[in-house]
């Protein structure tokens, strides 16, 4: 045999995987999401006027310097209320997302790694829960348990458990079928090691993207409930309830209902752009 096949030369060895650049739209998403996250933390401290203070006695005032986005139904500053409302909008949604992903993800990993009847039972239950429209689920829960922030968080959390479960499970089942998991089993590794060290690290990318989408769903659900008057209750206000209380102003052409809705739109579109343009994600 010729000497060229002896061994592969060391100098051609290391191909570095090229770092994928983030496209422009991805950057737009990052900036928008970062902006709203900062608002959610510091917004209430930065408002030009106190969010609850009535400044304009007439209400539905126009956009003027000092009240850049006009005033709302009671004559409060719309800009200040949107800045303050970021917290009430984003906070419960993040909490609900974490709840959903934690419960759904844990159950999914267990279902994928153990398999058998546990997998079947969990999957069937999740299929049943997912076959109730989410807003309807929310309405019934609110009708039964009354409106409060913990109820809203738990309701939204439970509603999005099946979605998180499905994604995590399908990813985990794919990874579980890989030979390297089989190798770990052949070695006699225990289930916790296989779940934590062999499966979980390979799920992180797609699962993060899924978290983003689930957060968008939670934001939309919670603000829709607020819009129906069945979410966050006064005196607290999230963007959804701000749209609701200013809806009558539309007749007079007052934009007070549009701005909070637009704020929601930028947040949800921003997260979508971010998730869609994560590096290494195929389009």
């Amino acid at each position: 045999m010729s000497s060229t096949v002896e061994r592969e030369p060391a100098h051609v060895v290391i191909k570095r995987p090229r770092r994928m650049p983030i496209p422009l739209l991805g950057w737009v998403g990052i900036v928008v999401v970062a902006f709203w996250l900062i608002m959610a933390v510091f917004g209430p401290m930065l408002t030009p006027h106190p969010a609850g203070e009535v400044i304009d006695p007439d209400g539905f005032g126009p956009m003027v310097p000092g009240m850049w986005l006009g005033s709302d139904v009671l004559g409060r500053d719309v800009l200040s209320r949107i800045m303050a409302g970021a917290q009430t909008t984003v906070g419960p949604a993040i909490a609900a997302t974490l709840l959903a992903v934690f419960i759904g993800g844990t159950l999914a990993l267990a279902a994928a790694a153990v398999g058998g009847w546990i997998d079947t039972a969990l999957s069937r239950t999740m299929d049943a829960v997912i076959s109730v429209p989410s807003l309807l689920f929310g309405l019934v829960a609110v009708a039964a348990l009354g409106v409060s922030v913990p109820v809203l968080i738990c309701t939204a959390g439970v509603i999005y458990v099946p979605g998180a479960f499905r994604i995590w499970r399908s990813l985990a089942v794919n990874v579980n079928a890989m030979d390297y998991v089989s190798v770990a089993r052949e070695r006699g590794e225990g289930m916790p090691y296989i779940m934590r060290r062999e499966i979980l690290p390979n799920l992180l990318g797609p699962v993060l993207a899924d978290c983003g989408l689930r957060f968008v769903f939670a934001v939309l659900l919670l603000s829709s409930l607020s819009f129906l008057g069945l979410g966050i209750q006064p005196p607290d206000a999230d963007w959804g309830s701000m749209v609701r209380e200013n809806l009558p102003g539309l007749i007079y052409g007052a934009p007070a209902a549009i701005f909070p809705a637009a704020a929601l739109a930028t947040l949800t579109i921003g997260v979508n752009l971010l998730v869609d343009n994560l590096p290494g994600r195929e389009r």
Binding site: M178, V183, E186, G188, E198
Partner: peptide, 24 residues
């Protein structure tokens, strides 16, 4: 099987691509 029995027989899979955990 005992750990020693497992140790003595090792499986080398066909596709190294799927046999090596990409995150390790």
């Amino acid at each position: 099987r005992t750990r020693d029995q497992l140790r003595q027989i090792q499986f080398v899979h066909q596709m190294a691509d799927t046999a090596l955990n990409p995150s390790h």
